[in-house]
């Protein structure tokens, strides 16, 4: 019986590697392709594609825009989300259930579905082609409120009472008791929010019309768009410029990223 089990174990191991490599192959291919320079005398290794692409479009500016956008949205979501979650987790007030259902229904609704109306709203504020205008529809997230509320619900009452005895105010208790207790969830949410917003494309493409505001995703598509036909080295280089730092950050922090995801209860 022992031998039978080891055989099936071996098959599983081989399968795991086959599947893993199959998933990694497309990414590996793009990276390899980006450092192959095609010249009349044949192909060689070099970073020419990458340096050419980098200087052909303001990728540095795109990165800066994306960073501002992502940091701003994530901070705003956490601040607004923590305040609202605290209200739902700790206090009773009229229409509490109705308001919570209002939040739950929005778990599924994303601002892009109303792109035409939201465009009018943002235009009405005079915020077209601004980073604020790109970020504004996302600053309050129903998912963030729901997720933090779930985390806050698990805070033991004794901690709250102890803080009350000490004379902490209600906001002080949020700061000193609830936020530290929910730290793993806050980190997990921040990671999810950062990667979601970093990758966002459609709405930023609609709102941003200049390189001063375009995030990296819109910049990449624009960088590749005007070409007639397909310039593979250029595509590979542009893609690597966009995904390289993201993958590097992920690989450095992946253990923490995957673990905080597994632990936070997003399941």
């Amino acid at each position: 019986m022992d031998r039978i089990l080891t055989t099936s174990d071996r098959i599983e191991r081989v399968l795991a590697w086959v599947a893993g490599l199959l998933w990694i192959a497309p990414l590996a291919y793009v990276f390899v392709r980006s450092v192959i320079v095609e010249s009349p005398g044949g192909s060689r290794f070099g970073f020419d594609n990458l340096t050419n692409a980098w200087s052909a479009a303001p990728f540095g500016q795109y990165y800066l825009n994306t960073t501002l956008l992502v940091v701003g949205i994530t901070l705003a979501q956490l601040v607004f989300g923590a305040l609202a979650a605290y209200a739902f987790a700790r206090f009773t007030f009229p229409f509490k259930n109705a308001l919570f259902v209002f939040v739950l229904i929005q778990l599924m609704i994303f601002p892009e579905v109303f792109m035409s109306e939201n465009y009018r709203t943002v235009a009405g504020f005079g915020l077209l082609d601004t980073i604020t205008g790109i970020g504004l529809p996302y600053v309050a997230s129903a998912f963030c409120i729901f997720f933090l509320r779930q985390a806050f619900m698990t805070v033991p009452n004794e901690l709250v009472e102890a803080a009350q005895v000490e004379g902490s105010s209600r906001l002080g208790i949020l700061w000193k008791v609830f936020l530290p207790a929910a730290k793993p969830s806050i980190i997990a949410y921040a990671l999810v929010s950062v990667s979601t917003q970093w990758n966002n494309f459609l709405w930023p493409m609609i709102v941003a019309t200049s390189d001063e505001t375009r995030p990296i995703t819109v910049g990449l598509v624009r960088f590749l768009a005007p070409e007639t036909g397909m310039d593979f080295p250029k595509m590979a280089a542009g893609t690597v410029i966009v995904i390289g730092p993201l993958l590097a950050a992920f690989l450095i922090g992946q253990r923490g990223f995957i673990n905080s995801f597994l632990r936070s209860g997003i399941k």
Partner: peptide, 10 residues
């Protein structure tokens, strides 16, 4: 990490 990587890309 390899299998998860595509999920974090735009």
């Amino acid at each position: 990490a390899g299998v998860f990587a595509p999920a974090i890309l735009p």
